[in-house]
Design a protein around this nucleic acid. Structure first.
Lengths: 346, 346
DNA sequence: ATGAAAGCGCTAACAA
DNA sequence: TTGTTAGCGCTTTCAT
């Protein structure tokens, strides 16, 4: 709000039009690179824009056309994996007129819905929702309102595109690796998924499914052992404590996420157990934390950068062609072997 | 953009007005809790809003009044300290009509300016800039356009409020602690600040000043030893490597930030040195990473949550009273002693 | 290829 | 206390 004394009126499209001696329509066309403006017109308008230091008001644009704003929602700013995703989005948006604005979703359905609403209220042109917790129905409703890409959830939606890591395969990579090292008592700490409907979509559930499947394929069905807590440091700590209390404790733990592995390490340190001598540990995400030398965690790289890049690419594509059929992109994970896994008799 | 088939027109203020049998002005007043609407009017409008599921368009609001959007810019999403700041902002905004939108600033003056412009273009009501790298002049210009609070920079500005940790004192806490443990060869890894103008404002420079000052006070002037790299893991790694190459290597390292300490630990692990037996290490920020059991880093808590909270509080205050004199809030840091520091002869 | 004019959904003077 | 009305800065028909 201009406050009389200091704040000055913004340069508007009509200032530019007047300065260039053309109509506001012409300026608008140049701004949007729309059809119907001669090279001459372009030049005149461009220089007027530069001279006056004009910048279009996104608010005003939003009332009729686009705001050139992409909204991105994240469940958590502490998990460094998401920073990789954001980098990918940034890379895909570089060179376009689009700007990304972020919000945290709080891992809570109501708060999440508010954030989505807030972005829609602000006329954002498209949304990238990273591992949202909302119901399928809610997501479909959002997607009906604004072009949307959902990251990290599986399944085929009718209204939005999805980009996800192939968590099923990723979990398999972990189990195969541990089995090859001679481990049999391989336990898993999962993020509890209370909603049966979402169990088919959420990465945490898929990872647990992949764990079960791979254990069976390896002939280790009888050793399947899952602790359900949450993808958080506390969840890892609690899950590990319970696993250590078993009569025959596991020789390897597959934590569903690096952040969970952090909690596991807290518990193991406390119990005086060393990794990998006493117990092997694998995470998931390949966050910067996993690469940290004193930790050096074996984990699964799910290519956060590429996930973000693909999501943004799909979104721009959908903004341009809202009618095209939805796409599901699944990216292949890769095992990153470090120093928290060792042969069983090593 | 509505695409004909599926997307439906949004409910507008006139729909609500019609439904409630009142004027749009009345609805607007109720929305803004403005003066001049009877309780009766309130009730009628409220129920119409609920029945129709109306939500105001921020774009339209932005053209005349407020957008109820606070823009927050961060230099880096990987440093978990900033998550604490964001939590504080969120806490202060809870219960208000304001929503925060984030953007990364990339630690680059040009990119940063673009982000600031993007937020201004989107008619945000206020900006919280967390450790921006721009010049003082640039910041003053932003503040002349929109109410602004700058976090993490020192000095008295005429146009914007500031909230910062007392970095000078914080560095002193570290040196006093290490000196009390008998250390004399205490080295520091700082973030290089090329601009002389900003050297008086940036937290990194102030921490280095505090280090020098405290060393002198402790009678350790001759041992002052600074490596200039950057506040990043790579910076810590590089700085530590250089320090370890000294003829007489330091017995303690004060890393300017926890993230730097991470890099130092990488280098120490690589060199086969153990902490704190071979060398003591202190960070700055008290991020979650520092509390992580296998690390257990002694560090300085700069109360990120309170910093964010105060910043948001000041901003809302300035939005309400643009003319009030600027304020500088400086928060006292506290040393958190953990397991990376030990007596020199321990 | 260009411009005039209508209108997007709100807020804020002003009138009643 | 309430309603009428004029824009805010753009985009978009629709003439020319």
């Amino acid at each position: 709000m201009p406050s009389g004394s200091t704040r000055t009126r913004r340069v508007t499209i009509s200032d530019v039009a007047k300065h260039a001696g053309v109509s506001t329509t012409a300026v608008s066309k140049v701004l949007r690179k729309a059809y119907g403006a001669s090279p001459d017109m372009h030049a005149k308008v461009r220089s007027a824009i530069d001279e006056l230091g004009y910048r279009p008001s996104a608010a005003a644009r939003g009332m009729r056309g686009q705001t050139y704003t992409i909204g991105v929602t994240l469940p958590d700013f502490r998990n460094p994996f998401f920073a990789d995703v954001l980098d990918g989005v940034t890379a895909a948006l570089a060179g376009t007129d689009y700007v990304q604005m972020l919000s945290r979703c709080c891992n809570d359905q109501v708060a999440e819905a508010h954030v989505h609403d807030a972005m829609i209220d602000r006329s954002m042109d498209g949304l990238i929702l990273v591992t949202p917790t909302g119901t399928r129905k809610h997501l479909e409703r959002i997607a009906r309102t604004v072009p949307t890409v959902v990251v990290g959830r599986h399944g085929t939606a009718t209204g939005y595109d999805t980009v996800a890591d192939d968590d099923f395969t990723g979990a398999g990579l972990v189990i195969d690796h541990l089995a090859a090292l001679g481990h049999t008592r391989i336990a898993h700490i999962e993020h509890l998924e209370p909603s049966p409907a979402r169990r088919k979509e959420m990465p945490n559930s898929i990872r647990a499914d992949g764990y079960r499947h791979a254990m069976r394929v390896q002939g280790l069905a009888e050793f399947i052992d899952i602790e359900s807590t949450s993808y958080s440091r506390e969840g890892g700590y609690l899950g590990a404590q319970r696993l250590l209390a078993r009569d025959l404790r596991p020789t390897a733990i597959f934590a569903g996420a690096d952040i969970v592995a952090m909690g596991v390490l807290d518990a193991l340190t406390e119990a005086g157990l060393s990794v990998p001598d006493d117990i092997s540990l694998v995470g998931y995400d390949n966050t910067v934390f996993a690469a940290f030398a004193p930790v050096s965690l074996t984990t699964v790289d799910q290519a956060g950068h590429r996930i973000g890049f693909e999501a943004a690419r799909l979104l721009l594509d959908r903004i341009a062609t809202p009618q095209r059929p939805t796409q599901q992109v699944k990216l292949a994970p890769a095992l990153v072997t470090r120093r928290t896994t060792a042969p069983i008799d090593g």
